[in-house]
């Protein structure tokens, strides 16, 4: 938990943003190593753009998973496929 004082002291610009955002992508996609995660967490505690960037990427990923409508396949399609397979 970061205190309010520490939050205020966070950097408001990031000199490594390109690299940090690549790391963010690996982390939100579950493709980062433990070492990369630890490295980024340490950095995120001190850097506001990195924290915001991580929050945004994580939020977009979760939004895609949760809010996109999931259609159910029509039962007629399943029947049609099974019928055609049986006829082969």
């Amino acid at each position: 938990m970061v205190s309010e004082v520490e939050k205020i002291q966070k950097k408001t610009s990031c000199e490594h943003q390109s690299d940090c955002m690549k790391l963010v992508q690996l982390i939100v996609d579950g493709q980062a190593t433990d070492e990369q995660i630890a490295q980024f967490k340490q950095n995120m505690d001190k850097c506001l753009p990195c924290e915001k960037g991580y929050e945004l990427e994580k939020c977009i990923k979760e939004t895609m998973q949760l809010k996109l409508e999931k259609k159910c396949v029509p039962s007629s399609l399943i029947d049609c496929i099974k019928k055609k397979i049986s006829a082969l």
């Binding site: 943003q17 390109s18 955002m21 690549k22 753009p49 915001k52 960037g53 929050e55 945004l56 994580k58 939020c59 977009i60 939004t63 895609m64 809010k67 996109l68 409508e69």
Partner: peptide, 22 residues
């Protein structure tokens, strides 16, 4: 290599509904 940033807030994304995301 060049990473641009898009100035967008996470809470704005959370407010969007499924159709807007789609």
């Amino acid at each position: 290599e060049t990473t641009q940033t898009v100035d967008l807030r996470a809470d704005t994304v959370q407010d969007l509904i499924g159709d807007e995301i789609a």
